[in-house]
């Protein structure tokens, strides 16, 4: 009878919660970035590629001798640059946001692989870097079960949590945030208020893309400490699903990412529990299946930003 409750005991294990928060971090950054873009009315399917280039650039900078935080900064700048490219094509030029986004993903992903191979032509096993160390907050981290998960993480995880609060504040409580929401809901009205729609949308996409890139950088600089090809592995697309799940709200995005990551961490432990009876691929499929299910469940009550995916041209009715 002892083993039959093993699937429940996983939840009492502190390492499970630590893993859940760790897995959630890149998703938090990615989803937050996508929320910012989509709130301004621009779907950013470049997310997968932007996360990849963030992962590569951040890692490569540190590998070449830069400091950890300058690596993160460089990754954010690179992500912002690709965001700018996406915004230039989709906002003033009004190109299809779907196709451009896929194009950005293809470009950023291939460029990451290319530059990586160019700088390191002959390495079979990916070299590692001295990555971020977990930063313990004394006192709080000794709370049983969840203490370590919330208060003994790497600095980037804390940064993710802080970002959610900052973005939520900016989005709901400042003129800038209201302007972003407005160009995503009704650009013509925003224009009538004297706001520059093109500028605000571009700014939101650049800013959101920078967050995505930091999410990618977390993977190479806090989780795996190395860069692999295909390491993003669909995380960007999962973030797109999470945005819908979160109904475009930063707070719910955090919740969604944590829930998702907890599920992911749980299935990994369950996998060890059942051994080889069930093929491991079934478990690996779960996150993707779950994302699709979440989309279906949430689809009935979604409040899309009204102008999402609709390019704005001045004077057009």
């Amino acid at each position: 009878m002892e083993t039959s409750f093993a699937w429940l005991e996983i939840f009492l294990n502190a390492s499970f919660w630590v893993a859940a928060v760790r897995i959630a971090t890149p998703l938090i950054f990615g989803t937050l970035g996508e929320v910012i873009c989509e709130r301004a009315g621009v779907l950013n399917l470049g997310i997968e590629g932007i996360m990849t280039i963030g992962a590569m650039v951040g890692w490569m900078a540190v590998y070449q001798g830069a400091g950890l935080w300058s690596g993160v900064l460089l990754a954010a700048v690179c992500g912002g640059t690709f965001g700018l490219l996406h915004a230039m094509l989709t906002v003033p030029l009004g190109l299809s946001q779907h196709v451009t986004g896929i194009g950005i993903t293809l470009l950023a992903t291939s460029l990451s692989s290319y530059v990586y191979r160019l700088i390191l032509p002959e390495v079979s096993s990916p070299p590692r870097i001295q990555a971020f160390e977990p930063l313990e907050i004394p006192g709080l981290s000794s709370i049983p079960i969840i203490g370590e998960a919330l208060f003994k993480q790497t600095p980037l995880t804390y940064f993710a949590f802080i970002s959610v609060i900052v973005v939520a504040y900016v989005l709901y409580r400042t003129p800038v945030g209201l302007a972003v929401q407005m160009v995503g809901e009704n650009p013509a009205a925003a224009e009538a208020q004297g706001l520059n729609v093109t500028l605000i949308r571009t700014g939101a996409v650049v800013c959101g893309s920078a967050f995505m890139a930091v999410g990618g950088a977390f993977l190479t600089m806090s989780a795996f400490n190395a860069f692999f090809f295909n390491m993003i592995n669909g995380r960007g697309w999962i973030c797109i699903a999470l945005v819908v799940f979160a109904s475009w709200r930063p707070g719910k995005a955090l919740l969604g990412a944590l829930l998702f990551a907890a599920f992911d961490a749980y299935q990994m432990r369950l996998q060890q529990l059942v051994g080889t009876e069930i093929p491991y691929q079934i478990f690996l499929m779960m996150p993707y299946v779950l994302s699709i299910l979440a989309l279906i469940v949430m689809s009935r009550r979604v409040g899309y930003p009204q102008a999402l995916m609709i390019p704005y041209r001045k004077g057009e009715r």
């Binding site: 399917l45 779907h98 592995n233 669909g234 697309w237 999962i238 797109i240 699903a241 819908v244 093929p279 691929q281 079934i282 690996l284 499929m285 993707y288 299946v289 994302s291 699709i292 989309l295 279906i296 689809s299 009935r300 979604v302």
Partner: peptide, 26 residues
């Protein structure tokens, strides 16, 4: 899903790619 629930087909088709590849591997 797109017609009946308005679920964005970009995400569903993309995620299905990963699922099929894992099925093939299985």
């Amino acid at each position: 899903l797109k017609i009946n629930f308005g679920v964005d087909e970009v995400v569903t088709t993309l995620l299905l790619n990963f699922i099929v590849l894992l099925l093939v591997s299985l």
